[in-house]
Simulated scan of single mutants.
Amino acid sequence: MDDLIKVVRVLSDWANLPAPDFREWSQLVERARIPKPSQQTPQERSPDRDWPMMPAMVSIRGPLASAFEAEDVEIDAICVTGHALALGIAGPVQDIHAGRLRPRQIKLRILTANIDVSLPLPTHRQEEDAERVRQLRLRDRNIYVNTLHGALASLRDTHGIEVRMEFRGIPFTPLTELILLNGVEALFSYCKISARSVTDAKGDSVEVYDTVTSQGMMKRFNAASGYYADREFVTESYRWFNSIWETISTEGFSS
Results as ranks from 00 to 15, higher is better:
residue 172 F to Y: 13
residue 215 Q to I: 08
residue 92 P to G: 00
residue 225 S to H: 10
residue 210 D to M: 12
residue 197 S to V: 10
residue 235 T to F: 11
residue 104 R to P: 08
residue 95 D to Y: 01
residue 184 V to E: 14
residue 196 R to N: 15
residue 203 G to H: 02
residue 161 I to N: 06
residue 193 I to V: 10
residue 86 A to L: 11
residue 192 K to G: 11
residue 39 Q to A: 07
residue 70 A to D: 14
residue 44 E to L: 10
residue 244 I to G: 01
residue 199 T to K: 01
residue 171 P to D: 05
residue 181 L to K: 10
residue 153 A to E: 14
residue 6 K to D: 09
residue 2 D to N: 15
residue 138 L to I: 13
residue 127 E to D: 11
residue 56 A to I: 01
residue 202 K to L: 11
residue 215 Q to S: 09
residue 187 L to F: 00
residue 126 Q to I: 03
residue 69 E to L: 09
residue 141 R to V: 15
residue 22 F to A: 09
residue 165 M to K: 08
residue 203 G to K: 03
residue 188 F to E: 12
residue 119 L to T: 00
residue 153 A to R: 07
residue 48 D to H: 05
residue 217 M to A: 12
residue 231 R to K: 14
residue 58 V to R: 07
residue 242 N to I: 15
residue 157 D to P: 10
residue 116 D to W: 08
residue 65 A to F: 06
residue 219 K to W: 02
residue 48 D to T: 02
residue 58 V to N: 13
residue 212 V to G: 14
residue 20 P to L: 03
residue 186 A to H: 03
residue 204 D to E: 09
residue 168 R to C: 13
residue 30 E to S: 14
residue 22 F to D: 12
residue 31 R to E: 05
residue 134 R to E: 12
residue 50 D to P: 02
residue 98 A to L: 15
residue 244 I to A: 00
residue 71 E to V: 15
residue 36 K to W: 07
residue 203 G to M: 05
residue 223 A to W: 01
residue 234 V to S: 09
residue 153 A to P: 04
residue 58 V to S: 08
residue 218 M to Q: 06
residue 164 R to L: 15
residue 221 F to I: 00
residue 10 V to W: 13
residue 203 G to C: 05
residue 89 I to P: 01
residue 18 P to T: 12
residue 51 W to S: 12
residue 4 L to M: 07
residue 16 N to A: 15
residue 107 K to Q: 03
residue 17 L to S: 10
residue 224 A to R: 14
residue 114 N to W: 10
residue 162 E to L: 11
residue 111 L to Q: 02
residue 89 I to T: 05
residue 167 F to L: 12
residue 198 V to Y: 02
residue 135 Q to P: 14
residue 36 K to A: 09
residue 5 I to N: 03
residue 133 V to C: 01
residue 113 A to P: 12
residue 165 M to C: 12
residue 233 F to L: 10
residue 225 S to T: 11
residue 100 R to W: 14
residue 210 D to Y: 07
residue 25 W to K: 03
residue 6 K to I: 09
residue 191 C to L: 15
residue 64 L to F: 02
residue 242 N to Y: 09
residue 92 P to D: 03
residue 214 S to L: 07
residue 214 S to H: 08
residue 112 T to W: 00
residue 122 P to E: 01
residue 37 P to G: 04
residue 244 I to H: 01
residue 162 E to P: 02
residue 92 P to V: 01
residue 195 A to S: 14
residue 193 I to L: 14
residue 213 T to Y: 03
residue 160 G to Q: 04
